[in-house]
């Protein structure tokens, strides 16, 4: 594709402009722009049906786009070129392997398709499958099979890894383990493009993320930027003795047995509040200041999109 027109000297791993995909009358992806730098962990976050899988499958070469430009490691993914497939690893949402082969055989088989594969024992260790190496895939648990998916994607030592909802269906400890593996990949300098509908996953793993809703990107940035950019405010929460009302000027409202207020100037609000507390000798029990989470921003943004 064409060179990036920005001054940014770092070559992009993925660059997408005005990407569109229609299935008949239905537009699943409605003109999105994305740029993923090399070595970055990028998350595409969105609710089910927002267009995440369609987008990632276009970038993987599994689907043809209806419009717009896409470049993956300098290749057009729509051409399904072998030179590109040699540099990319893919974990699809649902895939199978021959259940009668052992874990090691499957990884070795796939490694043989690539010009410079990663050592099989290394791949097994990286995905926590060393102990299962000689077991047949059909005998593994669901979580272990998902790790085989990841091991197969890593077998060719790809520069870029696509993970489509890599932890859906995992129990909490398996999720943490998978996160550690993804962080390990980032440490190896791999570019990772993942989709997820878990806010905490995006927040925990992604250097940058984009929120997709109804086929459009509604926000993009680092997790911190997104939290800061949202109109979701800092929340201050406290309890008062039953007989005491919070003065109206604080804009606080009752939430169950506590009081809550939202503010864009948390230092000032907290200062006013504690000053009043000292003056009137009213204790602010269980005082709590919380920043908006990515979840708040996400729910707000996706709700706005749905309302339009």
């Amino acid at each position: 594709m064409r060179a990036p027109e920005t001054a940014d000297p770092a070559p992009a791993a993925i660059e997408v402009r005005s990407l569109r995909k229609a299935y008949g009358e239905v537009e699943a992806v409605r003109g999105i722009d994305l740029r993923v730098a090399r070595g970055e962990v990028f998350a595409l976050l969105g609710p089910n049906g927002a267009g995440k899988t369609t987008t990632v499958e276009i970038l993987e070469g599994h689907r043809q786009r209806s419009g717009g430009d896409a470049s993956v490691l300098g290749h057009d993914p729509g051409r399904n070129e072998r030179a590109l497939r040699q540099r990319v690893g893919i974990v699809l949402q649902q895939t199978g392997v021959d259940g009668y082969l052992t874990v090691r055989e499957v990884v070795q088989m796939v490694a043989g398709y690539y010009p410079h594969p990663r050592d099989t024992d290394e791949v097994l260790a990286l995905t926590g499958l060393s102990d299962q190496a000689n077991r047949r895939v059909r005998k593994l648990s669901g979580g272990q099979k998902r790790r085989v998916d990841l091991a197969v994607a890593l077998a060719g030592d790809p520069e870029l890894l696509f993970l489509d909802e890599p932890t859906t269906g995992f129990d909490p400890s398996a999720r943490r383990q998978a996160w550690e593996t993804v962080r390990g990949l980032a440490a190896l300098g791999k570019t990772v493009f993942l989709t997820t509908h878990f806010m905490d996953e995006a927040q925990a793993l992604a250097d940058r993320l984009a929120i997709i809703a109804d086929g459009r990107i509604v926000a993009t940035g680092t997790p911190d930027e997104l939290i800061g950019s949202g109109s979701a405010a800092t929340r201050i929460r406290f309890r008062l003795p039953p007989s005491v009302e919070a003065p109206e000027r604080f804009g606080a409202h009752r939430v169950a047995s506590a009081w809550e207020l939202e503010t864009d100037t948390p230092t000032q609000s907290l200062h006013d509040l504690t000053a009043w507390s000292l003056e009137t000798a009213t204790e602010l029990a269980d005082l709590e200041v919380t920043r908006p989470s990515l979840e708040d921003v996400y729910l707000q943004l996706t709700a706005e999109e749905a309302a339009e």
């Binding site: 072998r82 497939r85 990319v88 893919i90 699809l92 398709y113």
Partner: peptide, 10 residues
């Protein structure tokens, strides 16, 4: 999904 996986490899 075995065929689709193969399709994503070289």
């Amino acid at each position: 999904g075995i065929l689709k996986r193969i399709r994503g490899t070289p």
